[in-house]
Amino acid sequence: MDEIRIQVNGRERDVPAGTSVAVLLRDLGLDGRAIVVELNRRIVRPPEIESIRFEAGDRVELVHFVGGG
């Protein structure tokens, strides 16, 4: 399978072509309910994480929610 290169939090990462946001989160062991995903400076809404597929050169920022008080 072909791979494409994307950036995740400033680091280059190769992923299989056709990888969705949801698959990336699972591969990284992250819970999509506790993460905000920004793709090319646009927030990815939770209903979109299964359908949005990466393209070569995409820039992804993953921000974790942190509880506190």
Rank of each mutant, 00 (worst) to 15 (best):
M1Q: 15
D2H: 14
D2S: 14
D2L: 11
E3P: 09
R5L: 11
R5Y: 07
I6N: 05
I6Q: 01
Q7F: 14
V8A: 04
V8W: 01
N9S: 09
G10V: 05
E12S: 15
R13H: 11
R13V: 03
D14R: 13
D14L: 15
A17F: 13
T19A: 14
S20H: 15
V21D: 02
A22P: 09
A22H: 15
V23R: 09
V23F: 01
L24K: 10
L25N: 08
L25H: 08
R26A: 11
G29K: 02
G29T: 04
L30S: 07
L30H: 13
L30I: 08
D31T: 01
G32K: 11
G32A: 09
A34T: 06
I35V: 12
V36I: 13
V37R: 00
E38M: 03
E38H: 00
L39I: 06
L39T: 02
N40Q: 01
R41G: 07
P46N: 03
P46E: 14
P47M: 10
E48P: 02
I52K: 13
R53H: 08
R53W: 07
R53T: 13
R53N: 02
R53K: 11
A56C: 02
G57V: 00
G57M: 03
D58I: 00
D58V: 00
R59W: 05
V60G: 05
E61G: 00
V63F: 08
V63C: 06
F65Y: 13
G67P: 09
G67Q: 07
G69A: 01
